[in-house]
Structures are given as C-alpha cells and as structure tokens.
Design a protein around this nucleic acid. Structure first.
Lengths: 212, 212
DNA sequence: TACCAATCTGGTAGTGACTACCACTGAGGT
DNA sequence: ACCTCAGTGGTAGTCACTACCAGATTGGTA
C-alpha cells in the first residue's frame, strides 16, 4: 500500500523543501524580505525558480508554512466538551505550543527554536508576511470552531464559538510577539497563559503546575 | 492660512478618489477581485492607471481605505481610565461603529450602508483583502494601546493592554462577519456587544440603554 | 531486463501589480 | 501676466506568479 509509498522520493522532496526554506529565511533575515527575490532564494538553494514555486505556492509561504494548525485542531477535538470554550481553546493552544517549542528549560533555544524565532521575527516585521500570517490565523479559527464539534445548526452557538476562538488566537498572537521581543528567553506557553489571563481574567486558564 | 487652502482643489481630489473607489468596488463585486485589473478600474472611472495609484497606494486599498481607526482611537482616549481595559476598548468599538452605520432603525440600509456592506463582503471573501484587512486591524491594535495612555514603561502593563485590545478586535471582526452574513439586517453595535459578551462574559459589556 | 507511468525538474513566454523617471496642464497666489 | 506646484499621463522596467511544454529520474511491472 502506498502509505510510505516511496520513502526515498518523499524524503528527497522533504529535504529540498527544507533546504529552500532555510536559505529563504536566512536571506530574508540578511537582506530583508523585499530586498530578496525568489530567484535569489532559488540560486542560493541551488535549484531553479520553478522548483521553488513547486514547493511553496507563494513567496510568503517560504516563511509561513508549518503544521501548527493541525496540532491545535487535534487537541481541540480531544478536549472535554464540558469545559467553557475559552478554556478548551486556550488549553489546546498552550499544549500544542509546548509540543512545538519542546520542553526546554528556560535558557537557550535549540536550533529549531532559533529557526522558529527567525521566522517569527520576519512575520512580525514584514507587512506582507504579517498580513498573510494573520489570515492563516483566521483559517485556524475556522478549523478550531469545526473541531469544537458543537452543534453547527445553531447560529448563536456558532457565533459564540467564533468569538471565543478569534479572541483566544488574538491573545496567542500577542504572546508570540512578546516572545519574539524577549528573543525567546521566556517560556512561550507561560506567555500564552498570561495573555489569556490578561484578556479573559484569572478564571480563564486552568490552574497549572506553576513551574515558575 | 492653508487650512482649507484650496477648497476647489481638495474637493475635486476627494471627488475623483470617491469615484475611483465606487467603480472599483462595483467591478470587484461584479467580476471578482482577481478578475478585475487596476487598468479596468481606471478605465471605468475615466482616469489613467497612474492616477489610480496616486490615490490608492495598492489595489487592496481600493476596498480597504476608511477612517474607522481614527474614530476608535479618539473614543479610547476619551474613555475614563478607571474602567477595566476590555470595557474601555469594547465601548469605544461599539460607539464608533454606531457613528459609522448611523442610528438607522433595524430595517434597510442607507446607500452608505450598502457600500460598507459591499466592501465588507469583499474583505471577507477575498484572501488578499482579508489578509490586509486583518493587518490593518493589527495596526489599529497598536493605535488603541497607545490611545489607552497607560504608562508605557511597564512591559507587563503594555502586554496586558495588547492582549485585551487584540482580543476585543478579534471579537469585533467576528461580529462584522456575522453582520455581513445577515446582509446588514441586524444592528452592528448589538452584534459587537454580543461578540464581546460571548468572548469575555456578561460583565464585559456595559449595560446599555437598550434602544431596541 | 526492458518498459511504462508518475513524479520531479527546468525553460519560455506571458500577465499583472507596482515603481521610477519625465513631461504636460491648469489652478492659486503674487 | 508670471511663477509655482499639485494633479495627471506616458514609458519602461522589476518582480511575483502562471500556463504550457520538454527532459530526466524513480518505482513498479511484464
């Protein structure tokens, strides 16, 4: 069965994709996003401009592509439906972020953490990237509402879910900005929890083990 | 003094700007945003493509430009600093929206209301417009935090303000989407109030005179 | 082993948004 | 009447992105 149908092919594809993205983020950081053409990225990665477009539909996706959304949606669907919306969503955001950043202990970041930080800085400072990233967050909001699984027939319930999800994601974005300003020195999950608390009040976030 | 320095000139400038935008929104609605070129808009408005770019820096701005942000910032600055953040911000959003939509009584919309609705529909359905609109909301968030006037030296206070502002704006955006889905039949200020309540709880929105 | 099919890659020639750079016109104030 | 300058238009160019087509490599098959 074609599950891992051609490991070699898939692996090579993933590898060139990773290489292109790495060169892109490096060049964007060095020369600026607008000061770097897609041709520059292709040349640096040793491929043709065509190949870049095959792996990344747009120039923005060279920075923005990740699989965070799927992670969050899965956590949402797995959360107990008895809790209030904001807590379900906020909890999923915090947990999935913990997975991504890895439970490193406060100090310096791993290589992947530095890469994430570089991408985040570009997202925040470059208007085109920031705009598309916010739109991706909007798509994530739709996914979250779907994953909540509450009855979609009641328009009021759907409205409630959308309002809660959008507000939670906005708070998370605020935490991401703060994290980038701190150069990743703080614990991102803690920052998200604090942002949620700041927006919704103390009862919005579940009591945690308080590892601070 | 050059306050109203050349009424005729300023008036003509504002008039062509308005005409270009009207034709743009009409064409985008008829043929789709991506299916309409800036040249098409220029031709329909009877000006050269150059002139369009003089008045609107980007194609997206043909739909997005408005002065809502200034209205909100003014209201924020005028709000009493004693109230909680979410209430100050939410109140300003509701009040400024009431100003924009005009206190019409439930039924059909004025011409300007229809125009606003058409623009909003484009913003929601067109990815490029949606992304830039969300980024404009992000800029508004910065403006709101500044207008709050709380001491900017304390990073924690600033973080709190950003989290609250972003969450409020997200809730408002949810209300805007719902309003567009209702074809503007509901009262937008009421929808915003409901979205804020859905996200933050009953105590987030001030009790209103209930003019319904 | 020879063959087929699908995928990966590269090239060419566009379209369309947007940006210099320059020239013309007409309104406002002296 | 003259000067200034904002407003407008034209040309040529850059760059993101998209068909359309062609060669190469890999995986499975007769």
């Amino acid at each position: 069965m074609p599950d891992q149908q051609s490991t070699l092919r898939a692996h090579r594809r993933a590898e060139t994709q990773r290489a292109i993205q790495a060169h892109a983020v490096r060049l964007f950081t060095e020369r600026g996003y607008d000061g770097t053409t897609v041709n520059d990225v292709a040349e640096a990665a040793g491929v043709s401009p065509m190949t870049v477009y095959r792996h990344f539909p747009t120039k923005e996706d060279l920075v923005l592509i990740d699989q965070h959304a799927q992670l969050v949606a899965d956590r949402i669907a797995a959360s107990p439906a008895t809790q209030p919306l904001v807590r379900r969503i906020g909890g999923a955001l915090i947990e999935s972020t913990t997975t991504v950043t890895g439970g490193h202990g406060g100090g310096d970041l791993s290589t992947s953490g530095q890469f994430l930080l570089a991408r985040l800085r570009l997202m925040i400072s470059t208007p085109a990237l920031r705009a598309k990233h916010l739109d991706n967050n909007y798509a994530l909001q739709q996914a979250i509402v779907t994953a909540l699984g509450d009855d979609t027939t009641d328009p009021d319930a759907a409205f409630h879910a959308h309002a809660a999800a959008s507000a939670c994601l906005a708070a998370m974005h605020t935490a991401l900005v703060r994290w980038a300003e701190d150069d990743g020195r703080s614990e991102l999950p803690d920052l998200i929890a604090r942002a949620l608390t700041a927006a919704f009040g103390d009862d919005a976030v579940q009591v945690r083990s308080d590892a601070r």
